[in-house]
Design a protein around this nucleic acid. Structure first.
Lengths: 256, 256
DNA sequence: ACAAAAGTGTTGCACGTACACCCATGA
DNA sequence: TCATGGGTGTACGTGCAACACTTTTGT
């Protein structure tokens, strides 16, 4: 990837990392899915300090020979025991404010947050370093205009509430101009399934008639399989994801 | 910011950073401005290995007690001697692919790229670690559909071409739905000044009549001062930035 | 037969684009 | 007075929101 000059080779040979202040780099993953029509996020209950016993996003340290994206995938699978990989994973933002982690007194911890989507993967299993792992409906979390739902969720550890807030905004805005809603549904899905993704992420009602027309009119968003699924009453057409990545013109979420 | 339990305090006291593989965290800044109607980026000629002698984005190491955003501001001023600060600076993305920096053999280098805008600040001065510093018109860089212009620019060091490409796309897309074009012009500006920002960043022609109407119709985008500037021929109204951050409905760039 | 969900038709309105036109100024 | 750029007027097309209406099935 990089061409090394002789000067570079000499330089690297004599490079002493201990001369630099210590740093840690971690990846944290905001994995979103739709459960019973509600947007849900995967959290783990921490089993080690710092913040032992509190709930946090799954994540962990960068290994020397992997990219930070690989860290995100690996930590997600190690901490939560999910067998399937997310259908979409993208980098969100990096968080480095001093004091965001107790270890900052000794060694700065810089955290790269990732945003991931997948269809409901069922119940996760707590992995290494986690006391338990489960999905929480986002609006059961008290920090996110809470408790329209039944359960009362936890307050998040570290600055993970800020990360989640940023992730939710990114998710809502990406549905406007990309076809990423398909990352939340199974391989075969109905247009109503897709509409329920939009409704959950945008927390708003969408006119089924206009939604259906618009999705079908967007080239490459969905492809018909010809089959039908006997879902509730009338059978709905089954579709698979098309090959377009962006929607133009975009969908707009109601301006609130 | 974080409340520490007794367990956390004990944990941090006994924390040994040397048990972890060494990491470096750096910030690199893509500073864009408009010069003679063309989009330009600030580059420095490196005066130390690695990649000594080649051109790169200004940047450097995270200090133990600053946020990575502060690193970006500090390195920009140290390396390029700019007296004014950018009028806009936002985090772009983090780059950590193994092999992106020669030092990765010894210590992983994770780089947080920032995107910054400002009105033309004049000629920069090379600072510590830089042999020289100057603005290059983006389309004089051979990797960016080059040489409509006169000069032939350099190939960038490390993965800085990828960063710049991502930054240009982000800048173009942000002009669609935010009022950030005002970050490129002086405090007082004409509507044509603002239009030339859009034309430089989008590399396209815009109808002056429709542009003027749309800008004035967007609440909070610009505020009239009542003054006029005798620019070319007829005097143009002078405006200042309004207090809105987002444009709705957005402007759309021509779909190419 | 009826309820519920899928999907079609139709209308009005808001907005963007294109382009003709007028105005103010300095050379 | 003419060239240049700032600015207004206007007509056309597109596309979406709203909502009435038809179709299809399971109970």
């Amino acid at each position: 990837m990089v061409t090394l000059s002789n000067a570079d080779i000499d330089f690297v040979k004599n490079y002493d990392p201990t001369l630099f202040p210590p740093n840690a780099v971690t990846a944290d993953v905001i994995l979103l899915t739709i459960r019973s029509g509600r947007l849900a996020v995967l959290l783990v209950e921490r089993d080690k300090p710092p913040q032992q016993g509190s709930w946090a996003l799954p994540g962990g340290h960068l290994d020397p020979h992997e990219s930070i994206t690989q860290t995100a995938f690996r930590e997600l699978s190690e901490k939560t025991g999910l067998s399937a990989e997310p259908t979409h994973l993208e980098q969100l933002q990096t968080y480095s404010t001093p004091g965001r982690d107790a270890r900052d007194e000794i060694m700065r911890v810089t955290s790269v947050a990732y945003l991931a989507f997948m269809p409901d993967p069922g119940t996760p299993r707590a992995g290494a370093g986690a006391r338990s792992a489960r999905f929480w409906a986002v609006d059961d979390l008290p920090e996110f205009n809470a408790s329209l739902g039944s359960e009362e969720g936890p307050i998040l550890a570290f600055d993970h509430s800020a990360m989640l807030l940023d992730g939710l905004e990114r998710a809502a805005s990406k549905l406007e101009y990309t076809t990423l809603a398909t990352a939340f549904v199974d391989e075969q899905f109905t247009i109503s399934d897709l509409r329920r993704v939009y409704e959950a992420v945008w927390r708003s009602q969408i006119d089924p008639a206009n939604f259906s027309r618009k999705v079908k009119a967007t080239p490459g968003f969905i492809e018909s399989t010809g089959d039908k699924r006997a879902t509730g009453r009338a059978p709905a057409g089954l579709y698979v994801k098309g090959d377009a990545a962006i929607i133009s013109p975009p969908f707009f979420r109601p301006s609130l």
